[in-house]
Design a protein around this nucleic acid. Structure first.
Lengths: 336, 336
DNA sequence: CTGAAAGCGCTAACAA
DNA sequence: TTGTTAGCGCTTTCAG
């Protein structure tokens, strides 16, 4: 069975329909310059033969692959999965396919991934990494194909990007904690080498403190990794520090901290308040449920992809940096 | 900046290196029939020009795209994300790219997705859907390119697949519940139109009952959707039914049921026991932690992809149906 | 409205 | 060991 049937090509269709390849091509591509009767005839043959245009040949001839590349840090992180979901829906709406590459697979650097994508002749790329090397940044900036950052930030605001106002979101959350009476608040993030932590979250945190007249101390900043296990270690440290509340960047880490606190007999939110900058179903599953910053992840993905289609189409873009509105969802790990 | 630099091709390299295209091609493809000095010369030019072979042209000429297609139900389900993760790692190990398509996007049927993938000339396809239409099944069976089911089942055992023994996993879990003293146990699954539920989970459930001499009653089977919200509705129904324990197919749904029970003042595991057939970080986050069937998701993905590479390579496969070992992780929603 | 023909960039015989 | 030369299947001028 397998491989017995040779693929049928545009030539076969042309011959059987008694027209030229060019005409078949026009029909397939919805070109209007085809007489209705001819179109019908061609379509009939296409159906009969189950002709399926070879996208690779098409790509070579037209110089467009109708494929975009997606570079993400991890597919098992709901944050990226949700973004990808929005991207995927809009992509299929515009008939684009997605080539998925993950930064997690140690095989080859991000640089390599980017080049592989270009070699595949993708028409555009969406990048969701948390940080980026200078070299790669420059390559993206001058790349033949457009690049959009989704849920990722470009400190230099040169590459198109879609995200939320991270600084403000942290400031808002920390302000909530301050308003609830906390004076010593822990900031728990991932690596401070990631700009989103060092430049944005830290900044929002400091701004909130400053506005409340609280002196910033680096003692209250905890740098760790995003895992459940890390939670209990960090919670011990936080408790020792004397903080009465914490802003935790990641939701899994927050769940770890929450459970560690509960296990230690700490009452939440009475004795300790906790918020996370990254909502997911997890925040609804924990008891108490966690107060969180809700980013419109699906929309961010969808908007990124829509923006990329415009860029690929050389359409005008008013704003290359789009910030979508986020919201603070107060659940049960905060007093108010 | 953009688009100013025309892409450099194999012809450019050949000219500058003073060799033929064929030789450049040989160097690029690691063909040994090239004198070392020639190879060096060509490589020097490649580096100097930053030549990057056009994968599309290569695909057209060689009839191989080094790309595989991935069809999954949802990327925001950790189950599939974890599988995809394993697939991705092995794929990049073998230099394959992945075209991602999601069944969730309503745009176009699964049939359409499959055809799009074939149009893109993928060398193989990995399917992770929970069910499949007869038409598509047949097309996959006789497809020009190999197909592997990952974490999905083929009731007819004709298509290569990698999964666990679902029947046995359910039977084991239900047996645990029976051994713990439960006589009336609820089976909570998604749509019974999905074979994995109707043919596998239900069967394992019935087998366990039968072995324990308990009469099966369809009253104890609850068909619902996999969401947190559904949990509380289902829990009410379960409670009315009088069941003292439940096997829940999906972990998010299980978390919903667990929390509903807790909210209703039911003591777990004392008054009610709960297990899920689908472990994830969620099971570790809930309090009490949930007892679950742990599938080796990453490995299942990796093995699927490895199998696909063999199939694409026309290598011999001893077993087209691979069942990987699973385990029962007893946490705190069961007495033992 | 339709067809002829020239590529797109690369691989793969086949020669040399 | 290297070069020549057909294509791969399609799009796209350019004529007609």
């Amino acid at each position: 069975m397998k491989k017995s049937d040779k693929e049928i090509t545009i030539t076969d269709v042309a011959r059987q329909a008694g027209v030229s390849m060019a005409t078949v091509s026009r029909v397939v591509n919805g070109n209007n310059n085809v007489k209705e009767s001819t179109r019908k005839k061609v379509i009939a043959v296409i159906d009969k033969l189950h002709y399926r245009p070879n996208a690779v040949a098409r790509g070579l001839a037209s110089k467009k692959s109708t494929t975009i590349g997606l570079i993400l840090p991890s597919m098992t992180d709901l944050l990226y999965a949700s973004l990808a979901n929005g991207i995927s829906d809009v992509a299929s709406m515009y008939k684009y396919n997605i080539i998925l590459t993950s930064l997690k697979s140690e095989v080859g650097s991000e640089q390599q991934l980017f080049n592989d994508l270009l070699a595949k002749q993708v028409d555009g790329i969406i990048y969701m990494g948390e940080k980026i090397s200078d070299t790669l940044y420059k390559e993206m900036l001058y790349s033949r194909v457009p690049v959009v950052f989704a849920g990722a930030i470009d400190d230099q605001d040169q590459i198109a990007s879609v995200n939320i106002d991270y600084v403000k979101s942290v400031r808002d959350m920390v302000k909530l904690l301050i308003d609830n009476g906390n004076r010593q608040i822990a900031l728990v993030t991932g690596s401070l080498t990631d700009p989103i932590n060092s430049k944005y979250r830290l900044k929002g945190y400091q701004e909130a403190l400053e506005q409340a007249g609280i002196t910033y101390s680096s003692e209250n900043v905890f740098e760790t990794v995003y895992s459940l296990q890390a939670g209990s270690v960090v919670f011990d440290a936080i408790q020792k520090s004397g903080a009465t509340a914490a802003y935790v960047a990641n939701n899994i880490l927050a769940a770890g901290i929450l459970n560690a606190a509960l296990d230690a007999g700490v009452k939440i939110p009475e004795d300790f308040e906790l918020v996370t900058g990254n909502d997911s179903v997890l925040c609804d599953v924990t008891r108490p449920k966690m107060t969180a910053v809700v980013q419109p992840l699906y929309d961010m993905g969808a908007v990124s992809m829509r923006m990329l289609t415009k860029l690929m189409n050389d359409e005008d873009i008013q704003d290359r940096t789009i910030r979508l509105p986020y919201s603070l969802v107060k659940r049960d790990t905060t007093k108010k």
